[in-house]
């Protein structure tokens, strides 16, 4: 990957602990996401990938630790301060979460209407350009129910991009897509990352996708509640010593079910 990343951290997760009731999800996890990189969070089912994402976007309160977006602590901020931090990133949810009562362009325009004081035709021009950016030109007037799953995900990215955020969080962008559509989505992500310098935080477990887009990955583990591997995906594939990480990158199915903790 020709990484446009630099050494300036944009997100710092510090000693993050999460639990649901007495159920510990992860224990004192720390890592950093650098500005401009495509950062992928990996892990088997139940390892807390999505929970991590929801903590990073401020939907869940951590049981301990904090998350900084540059200098701003999203776990401590409240009210207007918190909303200001939230405007620095966009989120694409797993199924797109487009509003079914609005056309695609209205979906994309909504954040602009709420958070900017642009003239009406400027909003239209910007919303249309976001749809073009993700390859949905000509579908502005469609309802979310009338488009395919892959298009809904691209439209959701366009909506997340509406306010030109610095960071985009994507929850399982490849889930439920065919390999070609998935590869197209990867291309869109790479284009946005390289041209606009947007930082991406992606939760996925699609191996081809990971090799295509990831600058760095971390892998969460269900058993130890910790990060068991981190680094560029190709490096992990070649050098990882942890059995589960090796199996993941080499797509092996072990006989020893104790080791396959997916």
């Amino acid at each position: 990957m020709a990484a446009p990343a630099n050494d300036e951290p944009i997100i710092s997760v510090e000693n993050l602990t999460a639990r649901f009731g007495s159920n510990l999800i992860f224990d004192q996890i720390s890592f950093q996401v650098m500005r401009g990189e495509v950062f992928v969070i990996l892990g088997g089912s139940g390892s807390g990938k999505s929970t991590m994402l929801k903590h990073m976007i401020g939907l869940y309160e951590p049981a301990g630790g904090r998350i900084l977006i540059e200098e701003d602590d999203i776990t401590a901020a409240r009210g207007a301060e918190r909303r200001a931090i939230m405007q620095r990133f966009g989120v694409m949810y797993q199924m797109g979460a487009l509003f079914g009562s609005m056309t695609l362009i209205e979906n994309v325009r909504l954040p602009l209407e709420e958070f900017s004081d642009l003239p009406r035709d400027a909003m239209d021009a910007i919303a249309a350009s976001k749809l073009r950016m993700v390859g949905l030109e000509g579908f502005e007037g469609y309802m979310p129910a009338d488009i395919s799953g892959g298009m809904a995900k691209r439209a959701a990215i366009a909506r997340a991009m509406a306010l030109d955020p610095e960071i985009l969080f994507l929850d399982e962008p490849s889930a439920g897509l065919d390999p070609i559509t998935s590869a197209e989505l990867d291309q869109t992500i790479l284009r946005l990352s390289r041209t606009l310098g947007v930082t991406f935080v992606v939760v996925t477990h699609e191996l081809p996708s990971i090799y295509a887009i990831a600058d760095r990955v971390i892998m969460l583990d269900k058993e130890t509640k910790k990060i068991i591997a981190s680094g560029p995906p190709a490096e992990l594939r070649d050098t990882a010593t942890h059995p589960w990480v090796r199996k993941f990158f080499h797509r092996e199915v072990g006989d020893d079910t104790d080791e396959v903790r997916a």
Binding site: S129, R132, E137, G138, F139, Y142, D146, T195, L196
Partner: peptide
């Protein structure tokens, strides 16, 4: 490069059915 990404394409998709 950003301009290139948002410039209108030649082959815009069919007009939406509802319109």
């Amino acid at each position: 490069a950003i301009l290139g990404m948002v410039a209108p394409g030649e082959d815009a998709a069919a007009a939406p059915s509802g319109a």
